[in-house]
Design a protein around this nucleic acid. Structure first.
Length: 259
DNA sequence: ATGACGGTGTGGCACCGA
């Protein structure tokens, strides 16, 4: 089984690239963030024509998430139950394969703007609500993958210039503490199960030649539950789509499982 | 590095992302 996550920064703009990437990278499921499309504008037709099932939860202009799968998924949830959220940031579903069920949660964490702002407070509340929900999901679905754009760089080694970014959004102690609390429910960062090249990022600013200079952050993650940890055989970042004409500012992350 | 770039909306720019 192969899973991927990619913040495409507008599915309308990136649909051709996404379809090309999926054709070259035959994953079983991909979690897509920042579709920026209301559900009535979601390109199900084009995706279906390419063989993809889609569960999506979107809105105009901002946010929006989708799970694209080769097989149909069940138990689809949108957003966090009991957490009243106007922003479309979560879609979840259950994949059933020959090796059993795997629960997939696709999450687009709030950006948070800057510490001390209302948006930062919302990010913290959102992460707390997510943790409570994931705890419950883990009890009913021990084989669980939480993947998406977390908008948090877990450690300094996930930041191209930790001194410049110290205390800045994505790198604050408060965000990292919330992320650790989520992980302590019984999840592991698939990327760190393996030796990785130093200076591995998933996002590079569009400005200031950041990609060419490899100045980025690792903020897109695939977390797997303890029950799946032993099955993970690889986790990589594919920088190729970031080199395309009109790229997303994020690169896809792929995890492979012996399932 | 108070900037930069890119997407969206209905714009002549502002807002947001990260």
């Amino acid at each position: 089984m192969k899973l991927a996550t990619w913040n495409v920064n507008s599915l309308s703009v990136r649909l051709p690239q996404l379809l090309d990437w999926l054709a070259a990278n035959p994953v079983d499921a991909i979690a897509v963030q920042e579709t920026k499309l209301p559900d009535d504008k979601f390109p199900c037709g084009e995706l279906e024509a390419a063989g993809w099932h889609a569960a999506y939860h979107g809105q105009r202009t901002y946010n929006g998430v989708a799970l694209l799968t080769q097989q149909p998924i069940a138990e689809v949830f949108k957003n966090i139950p009991g957490f009243d959220d106007e922003q479309a940031r979560i879609v979840a579903g259950t994949l059933t394969g020959a090796a059993g069920k795997v629960r997939l949660i696709n999450a687009y964490f709030p950006n948070g703007q800057a510490p001390g702002t209302d948006k930062f407070a919302y990010k913290m509340r959102w992460m707390e609500a997510l943790r409570d929900w994931v705890r419950a999901e883990l009890s009913s679905h021990p084989r669980l993958v939480l993947m998406g754009d977390f908008n948090v760089a877990p450690e300094d080694r996930d930041v191209y210039d930790p001194v410049l970014w110290e205390g800045q959004i994505h790198c604050t102690d408060e965000e990292r503490t919330h992320l650790r609390a989520l992980i302590e429910l019984g999840l592991v960062d698939a990327f760190r199960l393996f030796d990785q090249p130093p200076r591995s990022w998933t996002w590079w600013d569009y400005r200031n030649l950041a990609f060419r200079r490899n100045q980025g952050l690792r903020i897109d993650h695939i977390l797997v539950s303890s029950a799946l940890k032993g099955a993970v055989t690889a986790c990589t970042i594919d920088k190729a789509p970031r080199k395309a004409e009109r790229p997303s500012d994020h690169a896809p992350v792929i995890a492979e499982f012996a399932l």
